[in-house]
């Protein structure tokens, strides 16, 4: 029997079986309802759970989105002007002084040199730039120049300009130079400062008591000496 005949035989068997009705074979005692009754408790014991397709992927995606949003917020952090903190070197001279004096406003403005063609930015980016700038660049006093402007508040009249009309000392209205809390001193200056301090303290706070007779004459003999009698009765 060749392959072709075998294939034909198989095909005929297959086609014939395909015509079988959807019913149990003749003489079968199969009870579909009974089998279902056995099957139902098993299905109820292990209920069909809907497969959560890509549950892990959703978690990962949410995490990535959260990280991206956090990074975006950090990168574009909008800081209100009140919260901007610019770290400057402690030995910066007073930057702005404004006072009103007899109708004449004196203002000193700080002008920062900027390279030509660079557009000045404002807001947070400017704050960040300033922060980076002050952190990375060594301080140089020549980087700042100060422009003093006299801005009249009112039309200047000869009467208002006269100094004699000023009766009250004006108070500075704005920024005062920050107090320096530290001072850089060379190590060699420390002993001299100590000595000076001790001399100053001795002279100002202590009084020498005792017998003046035992004092050795010094170069300042002619200076008046404080003599305090030892007996109190003589005072009375």
């Amino acid at each position: 029997m060749n392959e072709k005949q075998n294939a034909n035989f198989d095909r005929q068997i297959r086609q014939t079986l395909g015509t079988l009705p959807d019913a149990p074979p003749p003489g079968s005692t199969f009870d579909a309802g009974k089998l279902w009754e056995q099957l139902r408790p098993e299905l109820a014991a292990a209920p069909v759970t809907q497969k959560r397709i890509g549950g892990w992927w959703w978690t990962v995606a949410a995490s990535v989105i959260g990280l991206l949003m956090g990074w975006f917020w950090w990168d574009n952090d909008v800081v209100s002007p009140e919260r901007v903190t610019v770290h400057t070197r402690p030995i910066v001279p007073p930057l702005a002084v404004s006072s009103q004096h007899a109708g004449v406003e004196l203002s000193v403005k700080r002008a920062v040199k900027t390279p030509a063609g660079v557009v000045q930015r404002s807001g947070a980016s400017l704050g960040r730039e300033a922060k980076k700038d002050t952190q990375n660049r060594p301080y140089s006093p020549t980087q700042h120049r100060y422009v003093v402007q006299l801005i009249p508040q009112q039309p200047i009249t000869p009467e208002s300009v006269s100094v004699t009309s000023v009766t009250e000392t004006p108070k500075p209205t704005l920024a005062v130079a920050p107090k320096r809390r530290f001072r850089v001193v060379h190590e060699n200056e420390l002993p001299a400062e100590d000595e000076a301090y001790q001399v100053r303290s001795r002279a100002g706070q202590f009084v020498r008591l005792g017998t003046g007779g035992q004092l050795t004459a010094g170069p300042d003999e002619d200076l008046p000496q404080l003599r305090v009698p030892l007996s109190r009765k003589s005072i009375q």
């Binding site: 074979p25 579909a32 139902r40 759970t49």
Partner: peptide, 26 residues
Amino acid sequence: QCQRGNAFAQRRLYDHYVHRLLRVAL
């Protein structure tokens, strides 16, 4: 509906295929 765990649909699917599959098993 069977994928959602509907028992009624499961029974209908079972009834539809049980005899055909019984013949396969036999």
